[in-house]
Design a protein around this nucleic acid. Structure first.
Lengths: 268, 268
DNA sequence: TCTGTTTTGATCGATTACGAGCGATTTTCG
DNA sequence: CGAAAATCGCTCGTAATCGATCAAAACAGA
C-alpha cells in the first residue's frame, strides 16, 4: 500500500468517528505503530489531524487554539509587562480605545486594578464583561456595536466603525497580528482590521502594542503604516524585527523583563 | 478512549445541560474521579468550564450568578412562561430585537435552548454573554453599541439608537416598567425608554411582554401607546389591569400557570 | 547486478496518562 | 456552632505511549 493512500485512509477513519488511535491503525491497516505515528505526525503537520497521546482527533474538536480563552494563556508575562507600560501613559479622565486583542484585555484589567477614572471604548466582549463586573463607578464604558465575531469575542462591521467614528479619544491601545519589514500593520480578518484602523484614526495618541508572537504571523489585510501611531510599545523583540518601525521614524519603547535591565530604548 | 475525545465529550455534556458533576462523568465515561477532576481542571484552564465543588458549570452561568441572579430570581416562573409563549412566534432565520429586561434574557435563553437559527439584536450585555458562550454556530448576534448603564447591564444612547435604526427585524420582544390605564408604555430611564421605542419602531411585529410586577410601577418616561405593538403577552394580570390595552384594541394573549388551563391555546 | 535513496520495522530510554491512597478542605446537616 | 460526609488535589506506582536511532526492506536507475 502506498504511503499516500494509507494516509488518505487514516483521514477517512478520522472523519468517520472524530478520532483514531495508534492501535486501531495498526489493526485496521496492518502497519507498525511506528509507521502509524509517522503518518499521524505528517497529518498533524498538514493540519488535518490533531495529535494526542494514543492517537489523534480532528482539529475542530480541539480547535480552541485560537479562541480567546486560549490566547489568554499565551505569553502572559509579556502582556502584563506591556499593560503596565501602557497604563503609565494614562491621565485621569482620558478617553481610551481598547481593541479586541488579549493584550488589550490585559491593559483594561490593569486600568481597573489601578482604579483610574476614565472612559473606555471597546469592541471586545470580554473587556465589557470585565468592566461590568469589576470596575468602580468612575469608569464609563462605551460599546462599539455591530456583528459578533465568535472566534475573538468581538464586534465588527459598519455599525462598529460608525460608532468609533462618532468618538474622539485621547489614546488607543491596539495590537496587530503582523508588522511587516516595510512598517505595515496587518491583521488576518478584514473587519477586525477595519476596526483597528478606525480606532487609530480617531485617537489623539494611538499606541501599538506588540510582543514577539506578533511578528512571525502573516496578516493579509493591511491596516496602515506604523507611522499612523505615535508610539510603539514592544516586548521580547530584536532590533532587526523593528526595522520597519525605525525606517518610518516612529517612537519605540521596549519593555524588559523584571530584573534584567530597564525599559526605555529609543525616543519615547 | 482518547483523552482529547473524552474532554470533547465532557464539553458536549456541559453544553447540553449547563453543568456536570464528577460522579456523572465517572458513571457516564467510565473514568476515575481523579481523571474527571484532571479533565475539568484542564477545561477550566482553557476557559471552557468553570470549576465548582463536585463538578463544573459553563463559565457564563457562574458569571451571572453574581451580577444578574438577583433580578433573575424574581418571578422566574412567570418569565419562563412568557418566554415559552414568545418563542412560539418565531420562525427560522428571523431577525429579532431583544431588550435589556430580565424577561428578554429568558426569551433569549429559550431561543438558544431550542437551537433556532436566527439573528439576535440586543442592547443587553447578559444576552450577549449568553450567545457568546451557549449559542450554536447558526445564531448571529448584533450588538447595539453605546454607553453602558451599570444598573441594567445594557447599552443606551444615540449610538445605540442609530444602530437599531440601521436594522429591520421581524420581531421585537420588549418589556416595560409601567403600563398606564390609558395604554401608555413607560420606563424609569429616559435612555432605556428611547431604546425600547426604537426597537418597537424597527420591528415588523413588536411584542410587549408583561407580568404583574410591571403594572404597579410608575414610569416617568413615555415610550409610546401600547397600540404601537402588534401583540401583548401577559402573565398573572387581571382583566382590569389591561383596560388600557383593550381600549386601544391590541391583541392580548394571557399565559397561565402550568395546569390551570390556558388562555390563547398552545402548550405552556 | 550493483548502488544510492526512500520507506518501513524494531529497540529502548524517556515521557505521559491513569488510578489508588490519604490528609486537607469544603459542604451539609443536626 | 461542631461533627459527619463529601470532595479535593497532592503524591506515587503502574502501564501505555512516544520518538530518536539504527537496521532491514523496497525501490529506482545505471
Amino acid at each position: 500500500m502506498l504511503g499516500e493512500a494509507r494516509r488518505a485512509a487514516i483521514v477517512a477513519m478520522l472523519r468517520a468517528t472524530g478520532s483514531v488511535t495508534v492501535a486501531e491503525l495498526q489493526a485496521e491497516l496492518g502497519i507498525s505503530p511506528m509507521t502509524a505515528r509517522r503518518d499521524l505526525a505528517e497529518l498533524s503537520r498538514r493540519g488535518i489531524a490533531h495529535r494526542t497521546h494514543g492517537g489523534a482527533v480532528i482539529p475542530s474538536i480541539a480547535a480552541h487554539e485560537d479562541s480567546f480563552a486560549h490566547r489568554l494563556e499565551a505569553e502572559t508575562d509579556a502582556k502584563r509587562l506591556l499593560a503596565d507600560a501602557a497604563v503609565e501613559l494614562l491621565s485621569p479622565r482620558d478617553a481610551v480605545f481598547v481593541d479586541s486583542s488579549t493584550t488589550g484585555y490585559f491593559v483594561a484589567r490593569r486600568m481597573l486594578e489601578l482604579g483610574i477614572e476614565l472612559t473606555l471604548i471597546t469592541n471586545s466582549l470580554p473587556v465589557m464583561q470585565l468592566v461590568a463586573s469589576h470596575a468602580g463607578p468612575n469608569v464609563e464604558l462605551v460599546s462599539v456595536g455591530g456583528l459578533m465575531r465568535r472566534l475573538t469575542q468581538s464586534f465588527v462591521g459598519p455599525h462598529a466603525i460608525r460608532t468609533i467614528q462618532g468618538h474622539f479619544a485621547d489614546r488607543a491601545f491596539v495590537s496587530v497580528k503582523a508588522l511587516t519589514e516595510t512598517g505595515m500593520m496587518a491583521d488576518v480578518d478584514p473587519l477586525e482590521a477595519e476596526v483597528k484602523r478606525s480606532m487609530i484614526a480617531q485617537a489623539n495618541d494611538p499606541v501599538l502594542l506588540i510582543d514577539r508572537s506578533k511578528l512571525s504571523a502573516r496578516g493579509l489585510n493591511a491596516i496602515g503604516p506604523v507611522s499612523d501611531v505615535s508610539l510603539v510599545i514592544a516586548h521580547g523583540v530584536q532590533a532587526s524585527d523593528l526595522r520597519g518601525v525605525r525606517r518610518l521614524d516612529v517612537a519605540v519603547r521596549v519593555v524588559a523583563d523584571k530584573m534584567t535591565g530597564l525599559a526605555g530604548a529609543g525616543p519615547g
